[in-house]
Design a protein around this nucleic acid. Structure first.
Lengths: 250, 250
DNA sequence: TTGACCCTTATTGTATACGTTCTGAATACG
DNA sequence: CGTATTCAGAACGTATACAATAAGGGTCAA
């Protein structure tokens, strides 16, 4: 009876796997698929910061009821990817300047520290997997598929953290990388992507050679260069001060 | 297993704000109070690892429907305080040996690194607040109220991380401290509490003196001593190997 | 024409009802 | 007497219905 109303045209590009027309049951693990789907859309900037995520619309798109959508949205909110305003619903988080600074500070602290352990534990299979990821990332960059490149870059960093062997820290780094993607969407300069792909290649070689210390230093420079490429200014946030903008002499 | 009923009594000591007999509305922020209530019960070991948390029972205790309880349980699950088994419901998480190791490794990495920033940013008001917390902790220890002492110790470490000024890392440390309380419940030796209260006092004085480096070193020793006080053995986990236990010569 | 107030509507918050599945025991059969 | 099977009960997963609230538009008055 619900004549599917207008959903934001955010899902207009591709993204069809979840619109199964006749789903008898979404299944318990179906919720996880929906979570990944929305999460990926946010990380790839198909859903931009500030975009509203209405429960009815999402429930309609994914073919389940609002109950499951609310569960997914709550999880995304706890990971800081969406913001849940009490009576206003959910929207893609727009990271503040302080938040961006904190996230990159945390990444530098944790990711660099993890390089030593990663260099000790990395296997040849890991090296090959990382090289393949870096290859795909370069390919996406050459094809001007920045959205895919951003996602692959975040996945690369998260995978790197996993190799260190500490699940707790790896999970944390994964969340930080997801949030970094949001930060890139707000404060990044178009055209200039955060990660230089050669950086990732150099990182892989240093780890493969067992040079944990050098890898840590390189990671620090790598993350600092990403942060430096951002335009983290105190945007026209609250109270745009119209008097100053229009120079009225009322 | 006999603890399945213990949660009915868990809120008997004080903690009466949620058992309002005639609640017109629990309110949106009422859920947060319920979250804190359950979280505190877990951290204080009134709910022990492995204890089952049935939705109906919790809904009955707090006077709301299962919907709100499920939301709270999901949040607790994402923070690793409770484990959500697909068709079995929720139970207080029983940290594995690897998990315990990861959590303390993460705490050493992050908390030590935050000391430098904390020493720079700490104010006299912060110092006074921390001293008061340490005082209360000592008082609880003298009164043999280990449950309160454990909670206060976790709060102390979390507050310390907040002073560093990085909200993201402070939140992370807060979760690690909560999980540490669970680890203490499983692998800790009764009678010997994790944190020595004088350690906290020394930490405060080092920070008040602006000695970030020394505070970092001290924090490292402090956390290592806590970890060393645990009995992290590969418990009779899976497959208890009955043959070995009963020495049967079948 | 502008401003304020009210009403409609859309969207979230909460509860409840129903279906599914897992557990546990009782019974029947070997 | 032991084991397997089946039935009943309970607890979770999902959907739907209802209530409350805030936003937006329209109307009336100054």
């Amino acid at each position: 009876m619900s004549g599917s109303r207008q959903m934001a045209e955010s899902t207009s590009s591709g993204q069809q796997q979840a619109a199964t027309p006749g789903p008898k049951k979404a299944g318990g693990k179906g919720l996880d698929a929906i979570y990944r789907s929305i999460s990926e859309a946010i990380i790839e900037h198909r859903l931009k910061p500030g975009a509203r995520l209405r429960e009815d619309a999402l429930a309609d798109v994914f073919g389940i009821s609002r109950t499951g959508i609310r569960k997914v949205l709550q999880r995304l909110a706890l990971e800081q990817l969406v913001t849940l305003t009490p009576r206003r619903g959910a929207s893609v988080t727009r990271p503040s300047v302080d938040e961006a600074k904190d996230v990159f500070e945390a990444r530098q602290m944790v990711e660099c520290a993890l390089m030593e352990a990663a260099a000790k534990r990395i296997t040849t299979a890991d090296v090959e997997e990382l090289r393949e990821m870096a290859r795909e990332e370069r390919k996406a960059l050459r094809s001007r598929e920045q959205r895919v490149a951003i996602k692959l870059s975040a996945t690369f960093h998260a995978r790197l953290a996993e190799i260190s062997g500490n699940r707790t820290l790896a999970e944390f780094v994964g969340q930080l990388c997801s949030r970094s993607s949001l930060i890139l969407a707000v404060y990044g300069n178009p055209g200039h992507l955060g990660c230089e792909s050669h950086d990732h290649d150099n990182l892989i070689e240093l780890l493969a050679a067992g040079e944990g210390g050098k890898a840590s230093d390189f990671m620090e420079r790598h993350l600092k260069s990403i942060e430096a490429s951002l335009s983290i200014f105190d945007e026209p946030e609250e109270t745009p001060d119209l008097r100053d903008i229009f120079a009225f002499d009322a």
